Amino acid sequence: MKKISIVIPCYNEQDNVQPICAAVCDVLKESLPKYDYEILLIDNKSKDNTRARIRELCSENTHIKAIFNIKNFGQFNSPYYALCQASGDCVVLLCADFQDPVELIPSMVQKWEEGAKVICMIKKSSKENALIYFARSVYYKMIKAMSEINQIEHFTGFGLYDKSFIELLRTLKDPTPFLRGIVAEYAPDHVEIPYEQQKRKAGKTKNNFFSLFDAAMLSFTSYTKGGLRLATFSGFFISGISFAVAMVYLVLKLVFWNRFIAGNAPILIGVFFLGGIQLFFIGLLGEYIMSMNTRIINRPLVVEEKRLNFDDSGNKKSTEKSSDE
């Protein structure tokens, strides 16, 4: 009997974690009764009652497993780590807040049975803020245009992954993995299924400006050289303009001598303009350096505090793997 793993990352989802597990179980039992299954919840150090409710779920259903992190390891490391701990023949990754429709799981499994190794769910529309969706669209197109790898627009990670692709994820030694880019790079023949993203069923989004900026910079520094190339070309361009302005100023000064009075305004404008450009590109260079530094330090993806409903062999194997990672 084939086994389906459902990975659900959690952070402060006390009002969603029980309903999402119930919804997933209903879909699996009604539409996919011939498959064995496991639901793997990984909690990123929630500050509410999420863990207490996960414990209740695990005590009621041995098919539900849980990993508790010792701290919050971010929105990318924790889901990636959970994918690598899943034991199914295929693994489905979805959010706990119902923005990823659970009723689409059978469609993904059908595509998988037809031979697809990776199925990417693509947001063709969303019930989120229209301005946010537009900004995301611009961001995706910019990254796609600047990257050497054909990035997948409006792909959040929601999808199905064959165990062969999960095994590939386990072999990658990246302490800051960007799953969307990895899928684009190593699964170019993936299948895309469009869907409409729903609103959160309960609770508030954990994303803010800084978390979204971190996500943007991770993809930017991991999969594009555009920032560094832009700095180089801009440096040549601005240097050329500055040289041309200096020559014009020198000619005017020599021709008109004392009658040419330009004042200090051009100098001040030029200094502040060039200073702003330099600070911008120093900051951009710093983002690349921070990304390199994180990879060089090579800390583990996640450090576990506790596991629920894993057998002893599974715990031992996972502990050895996480220490290697």
Results as ranks from 00 to 15, higher is better:
V248D: 06
N72C: 03
K65C: 09
D100N: 14
F213H: 11
S87Y: 00
V303D: 10
G276D: 10
F280D: 07
G286H: 05
V109A: 05
L284D: 07
F178H: 14
Y37I: 00
I193P: 01
E325V: 07
G283A: 12
M142H: 08
R295V: 06
G88Y: 01
F280V: 11
Y81A: 14
G240N: 12
I143F: 05
A86D: 02
L218F: 03
A22T: 12
D214K: 14
I166F: 04
I67E: 00
Y249S: 12
D26R: 12
V303H: 08
K141D: 12
Q99M: 12
A23R: 04
E30N: 12
K163E: 02
F165H: 03
Q99H: 02
L218S: 11
G74I: 04
L252D: 04
K124P: 00
K127T: 02
L252E: 11
D48C: 03
Q198A: 14
L228W: 07
N315H: 07
L254Y: 08
E167R: 09
L104E: 06
I105G: 00
S219L: 10
S323R: 09
V248G: 01
I39A: 08
V255L: 11
C84G: 07
L250V: 03
F260K: 03
R295E: 03
S59F: 02
E30Q: 12
S107R: 08
D324A: 11
N77T: 04
E128Q: 11
Y140L: 02
L218H: 09
V118L: 00
F210V: 07
L308G: 06
I8W: 05
D312A: 15
F73L: 08
